[in-house]
């Protein structure tokens, strides 16, 4: 009798969990699709989380919507269109390429090109402004300095 009570007690939390998961279908392939797409969709309540990560009621509702639409035979693009029509591009973590997002998409590339151009210009100028190469006499003096055989009186100042 005691053992039976223990088993019942141990099963209790499991029963509770089973109740929680009622809205999730038991098709693992479908669930995997739902979660994969949900990771790319932004939750509008906690804006730094995807609807896969967020437990906000709206995120749960939207996950259910995604699941329902998959079950109705829609593909990923159709589900994304459905959500964008209601919440705007804001729900996408990967914003589309269009007029208003031009700067967003091209900005970093433009900055890189501008930076590289500036660097090239600076380097070219540095070459142009570099001192002329040493003549034979200067070479000899440099060699002497390196050898330590140069006359100290002349070089100690520099």
């Amino acid at each position: 009798m005691r053992r039976l009570a223990l088993v019942a007690a141990l099963l209790l939390p499991v029963a509770g969990q089973a109740g929680e998961a009622a809205t999730v279908s038991d098709d693992p392939v479908l669930e995997e699709r739902v979660m994969r797409l949900s990771h790319d969709l932004r939750c509008l309540v906690c804006q730094n989380q995807s609807i896969a990560e967020s437990n906000a009621p709206l995120a749960v509702d939207l996950r259910n919507q995604v699941r329902e639409q998959f079950l109705a035979g829609k593909d990923e693009a159709a589900v994304v269109d459905y959500l964008v029509a209601r919440y705007g591009d804001f729900v996408l973590y990967l914003p589309p390429f269009k007029g208003t997002t031009l700067l967003l998409w091209l900005g970093p590339g433009l900055l890189l090109v501008a930076g590289a151009g500036w660097l090239a210009w600076r380097l070219r100028r540095r070459v142009r402004e570099a001192p002329p190469p040493l003549n034979a006499e200067e070479h000899a003096r440099a060699a002497a300095l390196l050898d330590g055989t140069a006359k100290p009186s002349q070089e100690s100042r520099s």
Binding site: V84, A85, Y87, G88, D89
Partner: peptide, 8 residues
């Protein structure tokens, strides 16, 4: 950032 412009 809480004011998401509505596409509707």
């Amino acid at each position: 950032p809480r004011e998401v412009p509505s596409p509707l």
